[in-house]
Design a protein around this nucleic acid. Structure first.
Length: 256
DNA sequence: GACCAGGCATCGA
DNA sequence: TCGATGCATGGT
């Protein structure tokens, strides 16, 4: 038993939760947790242990999927094989601060530039996400194309260096969110992405423009609803699995 | 040349 | 607590 049943790797990587991957002839190059490895559609892995890859791929969601299917409103939005990856918290934090008012190709490009410029070399010609102490120069980040996002990244890195993420995994989701939101450049949406994609808090429900549109159409008859009501509705419908539902909604809302 | 993008911080009502 | 605005830049 590998723990990697029922995963569509391509669909999962393309779902906008993780940006440090690239297609190759022989599979996908994945850079995470300071390492680089290659995985193919059959989940054969090179450059990492089975256990490392499986942990990154996240837990099997078959049971959660079956639970979500019972919601007739959500059922048409569900896609097969979509996982919630388990990312490195710092790497995930940088990624979603960078995602602010951006788009997936640009986010990936920004992060690649950052890693090429400041990251340690890895196998497969990859570069790691730089350590927080390496993010010292806002002007460099602006030259790399981060725009106004550069403003927060240096102070954010300093806070992380001082231990802002230490022990976060032992806090409740609400407590962890409070701490994340206190960091520079981190609002509720970015915090929820980090909680969902790095800490496997499946109750976290990031609301971006696509999910907001999908939810107002789905649950509020197309009438505008505040994020507070959307969050309450998601919690009421899907509870501890709201974040998983969110990722399906996001994928479908973007692909049409 | 608007308009929008996996938002956040700030300010005024 | 809510709505408007500025923030950089690239794509449509």
């Amino acid at each position: 038993m590998t723990g990697t049943t029922a995963i569509d790797l391509a669909r999962t990587l393309e779902s906008g939760q993780f940006f440090r991957w690239r297609r190759r002839d022989d599979g996908f190059l994945i850079v995470t947790h300071g390492r680089a490895f290659v995985a193919d559609d059959d989940l054969r892995v090179r450059g990492a242990t089975r256990a490392f890859a499986d942990r990154f791929f996240g837990p099997d969601l078959t049971e959660i999927h079956q639970t979500l299917e019972r919601d007739p409103l959500l059922r048409p939005f569900l896609v097969e094989g979509l996982r919630i990856l388990r990312q490195d918290p710092w790497e995930c934090l940088v990624s979603f601060v960078t995602s602010c008012a951006s788009n997936i190709p640009r986010i990936a490009r920004n992060l690649d530039s950052l890693c090429a410029s400041l990251g340690e070399p890895l196998p497969f010609d990859a570069r790691a996400m730089p350590h927080p102490r390496a993010l010292r120069d806002e002007k460099l980040l602006r030259r790399l194309g981060f725009g106004f996002r550069a403003r927060h990244l240096v102070p954010l890195a300093r806070e992380v260096e001082r231990g802002a993420l230490d022990g976060l995994d032992r806090l409740s989701t609400d407590e962890a969110r409070v701490r994340l939101v206190s960091l520079p450049g981190v609002g509720v949406k970015v915090a929820d992405c980090v909680l969902l994609f790095a800490y496997a808090r499946f109750e976290a429900f990031p609301i971006d423009v696509h999910v907001r549109r999908a939810m107002t159409g789905l649950c509020f008859g197309g009438r505008p609803a505040g994020d507070r009501r959307i969050r309450e509705e998601a919690a009421r419908r899907w509870g501890a699995h709201a974040g998983v539902a969110q990722q399906h909604l996001y994928v479908r809302a973007r692909s049409g």
